[in-house]
């Protein structure tokens, strides 16, 4: 198996799906000649030509809207919005139409499209380039919301997303894009949308996280083992919506303690829904209040203060220890 960055792994997924299915095409700003501002679509233009790798004019609403039309007439567009912070220009199309055509047509139309965007902090960027607002999509009935945490899962999930009959929002943690490599099989691999994964087993505490926060959470779990003799379980959500609450329910019923880690704002964030489900299904199993380690309820600051906004190992450890000591 070849070791790949997340950028390379996503590129592989796109290439293989395009190779396999002529109806799959890629569109977005700078995705052709430039290969995307993060080079995720590199080489696709040369391989598949301008009709299938479309450098669009600069308009996100158009990118999403024409993708919907393409999907209605049988294509499977994978569109790229350059940064999630600009995806709100296309939000209207996703909310008002991509999410609703199936219902509106009583099942006649499927909007089989993927909207990819890099999200999250960590690249010393300007305003609007660092946010993590997946809940806008997760809150919208009819959309699926996926966030991979590493190269291998990113590849497998994107393949599943492209084949999924419903519209999938695919957020890519840009801080992870080139942060590390993982073995990615050349042969086709998929991973079910709507399924989370236990990535580390433990009996004392359950961490629930996803995306760029998986790495610091695992590091915190390792530190807890070394310094506190605590065995923490770590769950990587992978899909935000529809939320797989089975695995974390089972886990928290075993450990009695839960710490949720995300980069998104705290209030009305993804953690709030997880806590609601835990309270609904596991209230009597809880040994301590559920803890959230999250971004704060402010616009993510520019990069000098970004590290104080985004959860890190220290903050995760502090949350975990308070939960353990309760």
């Amino acid at each position: 198996m070849k070791k790949m960055t997340m950028v390379e792994a996503i590129n592989l997924a796109l290439k293989q799906e395009m190779e396999k299915d002529e109806d799959v095409l890629v569109l977005g700003e700078d995705v052709g000649m430039d290969g995307g501002v993060f080079r995720v679509t590199k080489g696709l233009l040369d391989a598949y030509g301008e009709d299938r790798v479309i450098d669009t004019p600069l308009a996100e609403s158009m990118i999403a809207g024409v993708s919907i039309g393409m999907a209605i007439h049988g294509l499977k567009p994978v569109c790229e919005i350059q940064f999630s912070g600009f995806s709100y220009f296309s939000f209207h199309q996703m909310e008002a139409h991509a999410a609703r055509y199936r219902g509106r047509s009583h099942g006649r139309f499927s909007i089989q499209m993927v909207l990819r965007c890099p999200y999250g902090g960590g690249v010393r960027a300007l305003e609007h380039h660092s946010e993590s607002r997946e809940v806008y999509y997760a809150h919208t009935p009819g959309l699926k919301m996926v966030i991979p945490s590493g190269p291998r899962k990113a590849r497998a999930l994107l393949v599943s997303a492209i084949r999924d009959p419903d519209p999938v929002i695919f957020y890519e943690p840009k801080a992870v894009y080139r942060a590390f490599r993982e073995e990615v099989p050349e042969d086709e691999e998929t991973f079910p949308i709507g399924q989370s994964e236990v990535v580390r087993e433990g009996k004392d505490l359950t961490f629930i996280t996803y995306g760029a926060m998986l790495k610091p959470t695992i590091d915190a779990a390792e530190t807890l083992k070394e310094e506190d003799g605590v065995e923490a379980e770590v769950i990587d959500l992978l899909t935000i919506s529809p939320l797989d609450d089975e695995k974390f329910t089972e886990s928290v019923q075993k450990t009695g303690r839960a710490v949720i880690v995300h980069e998104a704002h705290r209030s009305f964030g993804p953690g709030a829904e997880m806590i609601a489900r835990l309270v609904e299904k596991s209230f009597l199993y809880l040994e301590a209040p559920i803890c959230r380690v999250t971004g704060y309820d402010v616009v993510i600051p520019l990069y000098q203060r970004e590290k104080d906004y985004i959860p890190d190992v220290k903050r995760i450890l502090k949350g975990a220890r308070e939960t353990l000591d309760f």
């Binding site: 704060y296 104080d308 903050r315």
Partner: peptide
């Protein structure tokens, strides 16, 4: 570069949940 400054200028008046988050950041610092 004081991290607690990230809570400034979000609203005309800082709502209670931000006051407590700001305290959290100050403690972490």
């Amino acid at each position: 570069g004081d991290p607690a400054d990230m809570f400034e200028f979000q609203y005309a008046e800082m709502p209670p949940h931000l006051v407590s988050q700001k305290e959290e950041v100050e403690k972490n610092k």
